[in-house]
Simulated scan of single mutants.
Amino acid sequence: MQKKIAGRKKLSLNINRGDMWDEVTLKHLLQRKPKILYQGKSKYQKIIVLEAKDVRMYLDRQLQFSSLDERMYHEALVHPALSMASGRRNVLILGGGDGMAVREVLKYKDVKSVDLVELDPKVIALAKRKPISVLNNRSLFSKRVKVHLQDATIFLPSNAKRYNVVIVDFPDPSDKQISKLYTKEFLQVLTKSLAPGGIIVCQSHSTEDTPRVYWSIYHTFRSVGMNTKSYYTYVPSFGDWGFHVASYKELNPGRIKVSVPTQTLPKKITSLFNLPKQLLAKKKNAMPNSTKNLRLFRYYRLDKAKHKVPNID
């Protein structure tokens, strides 16, 4: 039974999908007795929205966003791809039920429709409610936006619409089930939804903590014949965070010019594509992810196992 909690209440957290820093930060925050805006379970996950000096959402103990720096993530996720796209009429967002990516997409007047595919109706309900609706500028109420409460693996094969830009904002591939969303086979279905010259951008986890995950996603895009460019940005809540843009057309990040207002992107967007040498050297350590060989969640666990959770008691 889901329940809304107004005020403070001790939390019972049994499910854990977060990494060590999520664990440490959440434990630290709970010791300070923050205001719990929402605590409950959906059909798919445990959800916590709390307010300290910022507003945060945790899904299965994994931090999804902090209001202090979420723009650093979402602006980097959205604007390079939309700026490189040959058209922006129709945009598809997979995941991203908090509405933050939608907020950034709606800045473009030539975007006529945004289809948001989100599995969890509770996340959508919270995104339409204060304080999250304030953070996302009530983006989910826009007439240009249509929310599909559906599994992406079911939505894509049954949808005939073609998209100029697809934004993949799935959860991190921490288990076998989520890892299937980053396979060669899934991408082969996803690319059928692209309009001619269409572009995909995919959040690809931490370049610092999980470089094999990052490069496996890159190699998976390449395995379906897509031209792929890699970039990253720094988000204080998460550290260095990686993305890939992919298309069957030629991609030239050097020509990126963002035509809408942003708050956190560098003046020269091309600087995001200048990967450190030590990261580039790790490209050879990963291979594509497929349903026949689900490497991605194994890479995730192996890389995470290298880090020990500090004791803050």
Rank of each mutant, 00 (worst) to 15 (best):
K277Q: 13
G197A: 08
V102T: 12
Y163P: 10
L187R: 05
L106Y: 01
S133H: 06
D60E: 12
V213I: 11
M226D: 03
V201Q: 02
A85T: 01
Y163S: 06
K109N: 01
F141C: 12
K107T: 00
L68P: 00
V213D: 07
E250L: 15
R162I: 08
E185F: 01
V117K: 03
M287F: 13
I15C: 08
T262A: 10
K304H: 09
K146C: 01
G225Q: 07
V111M: 01
S290H: 08
Y73H: 11
A125F: 08
N311A: 06
D209S: 14
R144T: 05
G254S: 05
K304R: 10
D69K: 08
I47C: 10
E23K: 14
I154D: 14
A6F: 08
G225R: 03
Y248I: 04
F273Y: 10
T25C: 14
L29S: 02
T183W: 00
T153M: 02
P211N: 02
R8Q: 15
R8E: 14
V78M: 05
N159I: 00
S206P: 06
D303I: 04
L251R: 12
Q31D: 13
N252E: 14
V55N: 07
E185K: 09
Q45W: 09
L187A: 06
R8I: 06
Y231F: 12
K4D: 13
S247P: 14
R295D: 13
V168G: 02
L156N: 02
G95K: 01
V123S: 05
D54Q: 06
A81C: 00
S67M: 09
Y232G: 08
M20I: 14
S290R: 10
D98K: 03
H244D: 12
V145Y: 07
N136H: 08
E250F: 09
R144D: 04
F65E: 11
A152I: 12
A125K: 09
G254K: 07
E75T: 10
S206W: 06
F238V: 10
F243M: 10
I132A: 11
K128G: 07
H307Y: 12
V102S: 03
Q31W: 07
Q150V: 06
S271H: 08
F141S: 10
H79C: 03
R295E: 06
I178V: 08
Q31V: 09
T291R: 10
Y214W: 04
D69W: 05
R144P: 02
L68S: 11
R222C: 12
Q203T: 03
T183A: 13
K10M: 07
F155E: 10
D240H: 13
H148L: 04
H28I: 15
A246S: 05
Y44M: 06
L190H: 09
H148G: 09
M100W: 01
F238N: 01
A81N: 02
L265I: 11
A246K: 15
S193H: 08
R32A: 12
P261H: 06
L302N: 11
D115R: 06
I200Q: 01
L156D: 00
Y231V: 13
D313Q: 11
T25K: 14
S67L: 03
W21P: 04
L294M: 12
K257M: 11
